Amino acid sequence: MNSIALFGFANPESLRLVTSLSVLDPSLRFINFTSETNKDKLDSGVQCALIWAAGAGLSGLSGLVNTAADAGLPVVVIMPLLSLDGITTSRAQTEVCFQPCTPEEVSLRLRLAILKNAPRETSNTITRGDLVIDCDRYEVTLKGLKVDLTYKEYELLKYLASNPGRVFTRESLLRSVWEYDYFGGTRTVDVHVRRLRSKINDVSNHFIETQWNVGYRFRAADKSPEPSRENSSKFNPTI
């Protein structure tokens, strides 16, 4: 339920619009306010202000918009075209409906205003099933339990998990994770992958897969775990 603060809704035309909006979108709840309304009341569960600007005059319109801005609310204004100057310097996020306008347009503007003002999550995490990588804290959890990784193990896991399904050669992983061209053997990648698997793989999770004769990939979410090469052959290649 989204609560909408109404300002200037007194004449029959404006009240008919509110009735039409209530029928069109039952999730909207309308509360009548005045410019003298206490800011604390506006802050209490109200998501947006809807202003009927006709007859308010430029100074009156500016005052109504600023009242909403003081409460941190986005604003939808229904107004004649010639009144546009009244909101050009407003401190509020403002959507405008020019008269004549339909209930459908006003409802859409209300939803846009609420959406723009909605809080956004800023968590910098990578979630792959039961595995969560917190890139801000350099922490990894599996099924809610912290996994202890070395710095390079963490960097390798984050790099693979950021590109699920993509196969990387050992050489490309050395360049991207270790950040240098490695001219010797690539066994260091194999060693780190083996250590990672011992820490994050279990009966229900097989995150890192081997692409034989190529390299490694992080298993895509919609892909079934590949059968183990070791279990399908009597010969176990050294990894």
Rank of each mutant, 00 (worst) to 15 (best):
W52Y: 14
D25R: 12
L28G: 01
F30N: 06
T94Q: 02
V76F: 09
L28M: 07
A71R: 03
V77W: 08
K41N: 12
S90W: 00
Q47E: 15
S59I: 10
F33N: 09
D70E: 15
P26W: 06
T34H: 11
V65P: 00
T34C: 06
A69S: 14
G55I: 13
T89P: 00
L58T: 11
P80Q: 15
S59G: 08
E95K: 11
P26T: 03
S22G: 12
L61I: 13
C48I: 07
C48L: 06
V65W: 07
P80A: 15
A49V: 02
G55S: 12
I78M: 06
V46L: 10
E95D: 09
S44C: 00
V77C: 15
L84H: 13
F33W: 11
A49E: 03
V23R: 13
V77K: 09
T37M: 04
I31C: 08
G45V: 00
L82N: 15
K41V: 10
L81Q: 15
L82P: 14
Q47K: 15
L64Q: 14
I51Y: 05
M79H: 07
P26L: 02
T34V: 05
A68E: 04
F30S: 05
I51M: 04
I51C: 04
L42S: 03
G72L: 08
I87A: 05
L73R: 01
I78V: 11
Q47V: 08
K41W: 13
D25S: 13
N66E: 15
A54H: 12
E95R: 08
M79Q: 14
I87L: 11
F30G: 06
A54I: 11
I31Q: 11
L82H: 15
G63H: 10
G57R: 09
F30E: 02
V76E: 09
A68H: 01
G72C: 09
K39T: 15
S35I: 03
A92W: 01
L24Y: 04
S83H: 11
